[in-house]
């Protein structure tokens, strides 16, 4: 299964019931981690999931998923030590949005995007957020050493999540 280099605006509704959204900017150093990690997914994971590379998750991405689809959102995070893996259920991430106040003029925080995407569905999307803590997002830079060393971890975590979510999907 090839990795889509963008999120189709009208998903084709393929047979795979797990969709992986890999978010970030490949030109900005550590912000590329999700793209790099998901491009390296093993064939068995790629056979069970649609992988879509995107700059950022949009509420519509979750809203438009077919019923029963499991979602995995992969992105860089700040806060924990660089290279540390962060995992949480999408439902938990949506609840975090309650405490987030944004001053952004341009983008909504990921927590709110997830919450809005869930709000507009008849049934919430089951799934997982998997992040890798990053160090530097220098434009044009390569992933920093500590983060690059952990990309394999991220790939492994995404592959595991694909397997688990696919297995627990009753429609599979």
């Amino acid at each position: 299964m090839p990795v889509a280099d963008h999120v189709p605006s009208h998903p084709s509704g393929g047979t795979r019931r797990v969709v992986v959204f890999a978010c970030g900017d490949p030109l900005r150093g550590d912000d590329s981690v999700a793209h790099v990690a998901c491009r390296a997914l093993p064939p068995e994971a790629l056979a069970r999931a649609d992988v879509r590379l995107t700059g950022a998750l949009e509420a519509e991405h979750l809203r438009d998923l077919a019923a029963g689809t499991r979602a995995i959102v992969v992105d860089a995070v700040v806060g924990p030590a660089p290279g540390e893996l962060v995992e949480m259920e999408l439902a938990e991430m949506g609840r975090r949005a309650e405490s987030v106040v944004t001053t952004s003029t341009h983008q909504l925080p990921l927590d709110q995007v997830v919450a809005i995407g869930q709000l507009f569905r008849d049934e919430p999307v089951t799934g997982r957020f998997i992040g890798l803590a990053i160090e530097s997002v220098q434009l044009g830079g390569e992933p920093s050493e500590s983060v690059a060393a952990s990309i394999e971890l991220l790939t492994g975590a995404v592959a595991r999540a694909v397997s688990e979510l696919d297995a627990e999907n009753p429609d599979t």
């Binding site: 978010c23 912000d31 950022a56 944004t102 925080p109 997002v137």
Partner: peptide, 9 residues
């Protein structure tokens, strides 16, 4: 694309 995380001082 960038996404902002927020804290209140």
């Amino acid at each position: 694309m960038t996404r902002k995380k927020v804290a209140v001082e």
